[in-house]
Design a protein around this nucleic acid. Structure first.
Lengths: 93, 93, 93, 93
DNA sequence: CCGGGAGGAGAGGTCC
DNA sequence: GGACCTCTCCTCCCGG
């Protein structure tokens, strides 16, 4: 495991070329994953298109999905606020 | 008012130098505003420091401030969600 | 697909409940896909973390990945405009 | 500063209510400052809008402003690392 | 072609 | 003081 990839001061050619192939491997993994991610984004868009074709309001549908993901967190926060105010009064209060 | 600042194709030297001084003015205004914004951020940090010095729990205090800013929005959103579900059922539903 | 869906007259209870179950199905499909997308985003973040642990500069790494997924032409044009603006301001600042 | 603040014995009602009013004051000061900060952020956005209306490329403009507010040294180092990575990957691809 | 929303990058804060 | 993590801001892309 090379310690640094930025400078090749005391490093051998082997270390450098290892860093190089390591860099290549990392970039390729990232690009592969991003490709898959993009494919999923396309799938999602397709589902919205299908929804629209069936007469659903896409914008509202997106809002519903977004809110479903937020609701639990908000609920927790709302119930935590009293506790928080107490804490905010400080240890010295 | 110059139509374009990117290219000087058919433009006279006057137009160019006008675009130049206009650009300078814009940048200076932006930088001035950002300076003021940064100063306010420093002031805010100072107030938290003062709070801490008086025994308040800074983290909780930040949370309280954050929630106070969110509460009205959350309430609105929560009341809007039923409407949203209705809309999501689509015009054709 | 509910059996009641055979009847699709406007404004009937059947139509409404069909729309409802259809909405439910759509939301669930979307949420499933978004879950998978999020998992991939996490994987990508992990790879960057690994890169960092091996001494790579993640900010530069991100820049390189971005550049690779980009038309050379548009990048060149962008840099040309930036240069133009810097010249107009007097390059050093 | 409330008159009751003269008494500061631990756990007394006076101490608690003093802490409460102090908390209120702190929160209000912070919210006032954040309001002003937000107003400045809006102003900045407006200036960019104006620039855009006059034909400037706002993305490039933002880049220039960023560069001006940045040490030349760090920018150079960043670009050097990017170049290094690109070389390692074979510059074009 | 524009505006709005979603995703990503950078900045700041907290914890160790 | 350094790493992680949240949050804000910027960018990009879709929809109108």
């Amino acid at each position: 495991m090379p310690a640094a990839a930025k400078k090749n001061e005391s490093a051998s050619a082997d270390t450098t070329s290892f860093a190089k192939s390591q860099l290549k491997a990392l970039v390729e993994r990232i690009e592969r994953l991003e490709e898959e991610k993009k494919a999923l984004a396309d799938d999602i868009r397709e589902v919205y298109g299908e929804a629209k074709a069936n007469g659903f309001d896409t914008k509202a549908l997106r809002a519903v999905v977004r809110m479903r993901g937020q609701e639990p967190a908000e609920r927790q926060e709302f119930e935590a606020i009293v506790e928080l105010y107490r804490d905010a009064l400080g240890i010295g209060g």
